Amino acid sequence: MQIQFLGTGAGMPSKERNTSALALKLLEERGTVWLFDCGEATQHQILHTSIRPRKIEKIFITHLHGDHIFGLPGLLSSRSFLGGEDTLTLYGPKGLKEWIEFSFELSNTHITYPIEFVEIQEGVIFEDEQFIVTAMELEHVIQCFGFRIEQKPLPGELLVEKARELGVPKGPLLGKLKNGQDITLEDGEIILSKEVTSPPKKGFIVTILGDTRLCDNSKLLSRQADIVVHEATFDHSTSQHAANYGHSTNIEAAQIAKEAGAHYLLLNHISARFLPADIQKLVLDAKETFPDLYLVKDFDQFSWKNNELIQEI
């Protein structure tokens, strides 16, 4: 799994930061990409990455502010021209479906693939054999959601030598054992999968929060998460200003990660008021509360390997 940031700014684009969007790359897990928010010019940002729009399987929208959705109509349209044929599922608050369909109607835009709209309600919004995604409402000036993406436990590794010692021949029986199925040998002996496989491996947990002031649901979504993506629009000196506008500070984001028992924190959605020279102070101040954090910039990419977050250079 990889996370790549396509836009890390707040409110409007700047020379350093585009508006909100990030990609959760699940290429090894399911051969697809999940996009979270789609601010203006997101498809332009994608041109500078290895992401293929036809690989985007799901788009999750936290809320309907323009800096989180104004790139959607263009990206959805371009996906048709770029070979997208598979269904794309679009998750978002009430009103998103109406806005997209109205935009397509007025602009005479025709999509060549199916779009499935899911209006977000609190609770589980997606589940299959690999992942479960939970949404909870945050505290912003309009309805806004955060998402908790949990990878289900992975099968343990097959202990081939142990299986061979028990008389399991090469071939499909080994595959069945690896997939958790018990088997019966020709002589009638039953071999249990758990006897020849290591224990299941814990999957990763990623929490991606929309715009929010300090709130309990941020902490609940972040509980024991491996990675938390949290906005840090303001700094500690403007905490009251942040709360008035439904946003958080760098210190408040660090506080959420600490109290939730998260492992890593990625600070995102940075106001243009902070110049490059200010960034180091934002990081150092937040690290006093939660040391394992990064303040991200556009195109930063992180990989999750062996239960560690690795920033790619």
Results as ranks from 00 to 15, higher is better:
residue 147 F to S: 08
residue 147 F to W: 02
residue 147 F to E: 03
residue 149 I to V: 14
residue 149 I to S: 05
residue 149 I to A: 04
residue 150 E to I: 12
residue 150 E to Y: 05
residue 150 E to A: 14
residue 150 E to L: 11
residue 150 E to V: 14
residue 150 E to G: 04
residue 150 E to R: 14
residue 151 Q to Y: 01
residue 151 Q to H: 09
residue 151 Q to T: 10
residue 151 Q to I: 04
residue 152 K to F: 08
residue 152 K to Y: 09
residue 153 P to V: 02
residue 153 P to Y: 03
residue 153 P to E: 00
residue 154 L to M: 13
residue 154 L to N: 06
residue 154 L to D: 04
residue 154 L to W: 07
residue 155 P to S: 09
residue 155 P to I: 06
residue 155 P to E: 03
residue 155 P to F: 09
residue 155 P to Y: 06
residue 156 G to H: 01
residue 156 G to L: 04
residue 157 E to Y: 03
residue 157 E to L: 10
residue 157 E to S: 11
residue 157 E to T: 01
residue 157 E to W: 04
residue 157 E to P: 00
residue 157 E to I: 01
residue 157 E to D: 13
residue 157 E to K: 13
residue 158 L to A: 05
residue 158 L to T: 01
residue 159 L to W: 00
residue 159 L to V: 03
residue 159 L to E: 12
residue 159 L to D: 08
residue 159 L to A: 01
residue 160 V to I: 15
residue 160 V to A: 14
residue 160 V to H: 10
residue 160 V to N: 08
residue 161 E to C: 00
residue 161 E to A: 06
residue 161 E to P: 00
residue 161 E to N: 12
residue 161 E to Y: 02
residue 162 K to N: 06
residue 162 K to C: 05
residue 162 K to P: 01
residue 162 K to M: 07
residue 162 K to Q: 14
residue 162 K to E: 15
residue 163 A to G: 09
residue 163 A to R: 06
residue 163 A to I: 07
residue 164 R to Y: 12
residue 164 R to F: 12
residue 164 R to G: 10
residue 164 R to W: 13
residue 164 R to L: 15
residue 164 R to V: 11
residue 165 E to T: 03
residue 166 L to V: 01
residue 166 L to D: 06
residue 166 L to E: 11
residue 167 G to C: 10
residue 167 G to L: 11
residue 167 G to T: 12
residue 168 V to T: 07
residue 168 V to Y: 02
residue 169 P to F: 07
residue 169 P to S: 06
residue 170 K to E: 15
residue 170 K to G: 15
residue 170 K to I: 06
residue 171 G to K: 07
residue 172 P to M: 15
residue 172 P to I: 13
residue 173 L to V: 09
residue 173 L to I: 12
residue 173 L to W: 04
residue 174 L to P: 08
residue 174 L to W: 03
residue 174 L to V: 10
residue 174 L to E: 10
residue 174 L to F: 03
residue 175 G to Y: 03
residue 175 G to S: 14
residue 176 K to Y: 13
residue 177 L to I: 05
